[in-house]
């Protein structure tokens, strides 16, 4: 092997310095500040390349990060399967009510990039209405469209806010009962003002956009006993310690559990059985004053026999069943 003598010494020094530099760069990349600087560069690149969707998240107008739901991801066979399942549930429990919460791409359409494709969830809702009858479906789409400017969705998270929950509660209350609306939007309390939701983590870039997690004061003051998966108990609908966790949305009903059993202070002999996803965690505390007992089952984490479990719970004077899902998670997670 022949080495160029003249350049050898200088070359070796430069080469070894380069190797040291490689180690230094790695150290820089490992640190948060280094990562942030590099991620900032990719944000500039995305802007330059006119990138409008990153890892399935639309970079929408007004700093909204909106989860993408492509029609191609939800084939017709999946729709049919879910319709059969929900029909069977309604046959077994004729008192069942269904709330399908529209995802942000269906409501914030004006904020989406030009021609951004999305699954038309209105069609899904119509199909569910056709399958089980209008009277079993609580349509929250119009309320969401009407009040979208009030912040029914977070900017950085795929789930609904307390404002969104309020409008769902209001639509539910219209069809199910008559009583005073205790919750007032202007009374909402901010419990976290720098919430960065799951969409930012999904796109993996640095974002300066922050959301606020708000809660109704009534939710904080109610007497309640909650059992999570027979492993943990709590005396509040909210978990303060979750506000500093990786997903601060777990503040509501402590996040994801297979079965959450809620004993309220309202002893009226009524029970509610909720089949739900994450979105429902912010709505359920608003429903609580109408029931003595609430069973909330998240089928993503529930491991038992659902039909048997429902039979076991059906021991109250009034046993209501509520299916409450985001339209996307209804297609992805709901089973009966």
């Amino acid at each position: 092997m022949i080495l160029d003598k003249k350049k050898n010494t200088a070359g070796t020094v430069v080469f070894l310095a380069g190797i040291l530099l490689v180690f230094a760069v790695f150290d820089f990349v490992k640190q948060d500040i280094g990562r942030d600087k590099l991620l900032q560069i990719t944000t500039y690149m995305d802007f330059f390349l006119n990138v409008k969707v990153v890892n399935g998240v639309y970079l929408a107008e007004d700093d909204y990060y909106i989860e993408q739901h492509l029609p191609q991801t939800y084939p017709a066979s999946l729709h049919e399967e879910k319709l059969l399942q929900i029909t069977e549930l309604v046959q077994d429990y004729p008192q069942t009510q269904v709330i399908l919460i529209p995802t942000a791409d269906n409501i914030l359409t004006d904020y989406l990039p030009w021609q951004a494709p999305y699954l038309n969830e209105r069609n899904l809702l119509t199909a569910v209405e056709d399958a089980i009858g209008d009277d079993h479906v609580i349509d929250v789409f119009p309320a969401f469209v009407e009040h979208v400017q009030e912040g029914v969705y977070f900017k950085t998270d795929s789930r609904i806010t307390s404002v969104g929950a309020y409008y769902i509660y209001r639509e539910w209350a219209k069809t199910c009962a008559s009583f005073p609306f205790w919750y007032q939007l202007d009374k909402l309390e901010t419990v976290k003002s720098n919430f960065v939701g799951d969409m930012v983590a999904t796109i993996g870039v640095k974002s300066d956009v922050k959301d606020q997690i708000k809660v109704f004061p009534h939710v904080l003051t109610q007497q309640v006993s909650i059992n999570y998966d027979n492993e943990m108990t709590a005396d509040s609908y909210v978990s303060e310690n979750r506000l500093t966790s990786e997903d601060a949305y777990d503040y509501f009903l402590d996040g994801d559990y297979g079965v959450t059993i809620i004993d309220t202070e309202f002893k009226n002999g009524k029970a509610l059985f909720v089949l739900k996803d994450d979105n429902a965690n912010v709505v359920i505390p608003l429903l609580a004053p109408h029931y003595e007992k609430i069973y909330a089952v998240d089928l993503q984490h529930f491991t038992g026999d659902l039909k048997e479990y429902m039979k076991d719970c059906d021991i109250y004077d009034q046993f209501d069943v509520l299916v409450m899902y985001g339209c996307d998670s209804f297609l992805e997670e709901f089973m009966y």
Binding site: F48, L49, N50, V51, K52, V53, Q72, W114, Q115, P117
Partner: peptide, 15 residues
């Protein structure tokens, strides 16, 4: 042609 094609064409054109 569908929305997905038009959206992709516009958002991918520079890339």
């Amino acid at each position: 042609v569908d929305r997905m094609a038009l959206f992709s064409l516009k958002s991918q054109i520079i890339l």
